[in-house]
Simulated assay, not measured.
Amino acid sequence: MQRPKNWLPGLLMVLPSIILVGIFVYYLIAQNIWTSLNVATRRVVVGGKFEERSIHEGGYRNYTELLGSADYQHALWNLLVLTVVFVVGTMIMGLLWSILLEKGVRGEGVFRSIYLFPMAVSFIAAGVVWRWLLSPAKGEGAAIGLNQLFVKLGLDGLQSSWWSADSRWNMAAMALPAIWQLSGYIMALFLAGFRGIGEDQREAARIDGASEWQVYRHVLFPQLSPIALSALIIVGHMSMKMFDLIYAIAGPNSYTASVPATLMWTQLFAQRDPVAAAVNATIILVIVAVVVVPYLWYTNRTERERG
């Protein structure tokens, strides 16, 4: 058994962090789950008198009620469309830019800075600009942003209502600002992966008669799979929690562009329903955990096997 002097200093060093994480993460998660299971009532006026009416029965019924509501199903569908378009678009653009830069083009530092610059802009600030760019106003004299550009170019047919369109796929337009902002980060991850692969592997493949495409497909891309998985998890869980960008572009109470995160804001502040907001928050936590936990398990298993 180790003496206290061997482990006590280390424990005292990390104890404040353990306490803070325990209180502000795990305790608050537990409190949120407890709130989501509560019975909720609301005072209403019936016949000139106040009566208590139940709005949430408590327990698992709170979850079935929210999941079965049309508003929440609409928000989940919007989240699915946003996530798919955002993840696919970001991964493709990031990979494409990294391939172009890993060749060692002239002025690489300038291009790398240009691609990474959007990351320095907050989602709120970017959302204010993109709200103007994606304005749904159409026609000569009314259109602004991208629609105005299309009018000036004589491409009136390309005008769109963007995220406010009456379509099940309108959230694909909301993914455009997110793709613009995060593609540079994914590019940096892939570029670091490319630079970590020795030139001798490429030369050996070329000597064996492999074309440039075959070098990428059979030599480079397989070695980038851990980076691709990490990037996929990062942008995937970011899209599931996205709030500030949608808030800045569409506002907090937009039904058309609602996702679970913005709906939670409406439930808590506009509808004054903390139980429904807690249920929503717990569901978001579970959705993110479904994506992140398997990745963490896979990463830990891989590290143990290598060790």
Rank of each mutant, 00 (worst) to 15 (best):
K5A: 13
K5S: 14
N6R: 14
P9V: 03
L11S: 00
L12Q: 02
M13W: 11
P16R: 00
I18K: 03
V21P: 01
I29W: 05
I29G: 09
A40C: 02
A40K: 02
K49L: 14
S54E: 15
I55Q: 08
I55D: 00
H56S: 13
H56Y: 14
G58W: 12
G59D: 10
N62T: 07
E65C: 08
L67D: 00
A70Q: 13
L76H: 09
V84H: 05
V85P: 00
T90M: 04
G104R: 02
G109Y: 02
F111V: 08
R112D: 15
A126Q: 09
G127H: 03
L134R: 06
S135H: 11
A142N: 14
A142M: 11
A143Q: 07
G145Y: 10
L146N: 13
L146Q: 14
K152R: 13
K152A: 15
A165Q: 11
D166F: 10
W169A: 11
M171Y: 08
M171T: 07
A173Q: 02
A178F: 14
L182N: 11
L182V: 06
F194Q: 05
G198W: 11
Q201L: 10
S211C: 05
Y216A: 07
R217F: 09
Q223D: 05
P226W: 02
A231H: 01
G236H: 08
H237R: 13
M240Q: 04
M242R: 09
D244L: 06
I249T: 10
A250D: 12
A250I: 11
G251Q: 10
P252Y: 12
N253D: 15
V259S: 05
V259G: 01
L263D: 12
M264R: 06
Q267V: 06
L268D: 00
D273F: 02
A278T: 01
A278L: 04
V279K: 03
I284R: 00
I284F: 01
V291E: 06
N300M: 14
